[in-house]
Amino acid sequence: MIAEQLAANIIYGLLLGGVYGLATMGLSLIFGVLRVVNVGHGAFIMVGAFTAFWMFTLYSIPPLASIVVAVIVGLAMGFVVFMTIIRRLLDAPELSTLLATFGIGVFIEELSKFFWGPDYVGYSWDIGGISLPFTELPFTKLYAFGSSIVIAALLYVWFSRTKLGKAIRAVVEDKEGAMVCGINVNMVYALSFAIGIALTVTSGVLVTLFTPVGINVYMGGDYTLKAFVIAVLGGLGSPWGAFYAGFIFGLLENGSYTLLGLIPGVEPFGLTRFVSFTALLLILLLKPTGLLGGE
């Protein structure tokens, strides 16, 4: 009985972790390349969630297809935000970028509220699932997990094999050296920011695949906090670290449930947050730069 519950928890933890991982990669990428902390991170996840919602509700477009829409929306938003605001802040003190990205997040939330209202919405894409003896696995969650892995893998290949990908990695290593080699650093910044935002918006679609209800213009806030924890855990600036750390976080949040429940008198779910943060602290004590963090 306990074993079954444990197994179910671990599966759910992994599935959730995949979504968490992708939702954090954008944040890590933007910090890694531009050294900008995007405090408005959650607002972009929310945009992705609403993208999936509207595509499904208005045009009956299944969420998996909405991923394409989300990527386009994300790239467009990323470019616009970079060109108008971020570009001017690259040499500004850190506090300015924190305030600016925070302001951008609030702006997006309020603008969304103006158009979409403050209600909690959702959609039903009922496509069945796998029935295991100890639990049910809806296909939507499996698709979310799978998409996350596919996107992360595609991104990895893109970064290591393509010209632009290598240019971005060069800029991360040595901005001036890259410039002298002929790399247009500003364009690299714009592209990286746009890709980071596109990743974040896309993860919003996956979040709704995982949880198709409770979509609301202020939903981003919870995700921002978790994303920061996961980003630090994975090593700030390493998107791959963030991806792995997402899994660990998902496992801690859900996977530890049954184990914690074994401790008498403990209310497990109330504790999972404590557990996640404690684990974070422990890992940072052992490896201060995070799992895959560099210098």
Partner: peptide, 30 residues
């Protein structure tokens, strides 16, 4: 600088500036 490079201007640095975590081959390929 990035617009001068394609015109045919290149330089080395007194203290070399490699792209550290890339391979030697990749560095030159850049």
């Amino acid at each position: 600088p990035h617009k001068r490079a394609p015109l045919g201007l290149a330089r080395t640095f007194q203290i070399p500036r490699p792209f550290g975590s890339a391979s030697v081959r990749e560095n030159v390929a850049i």
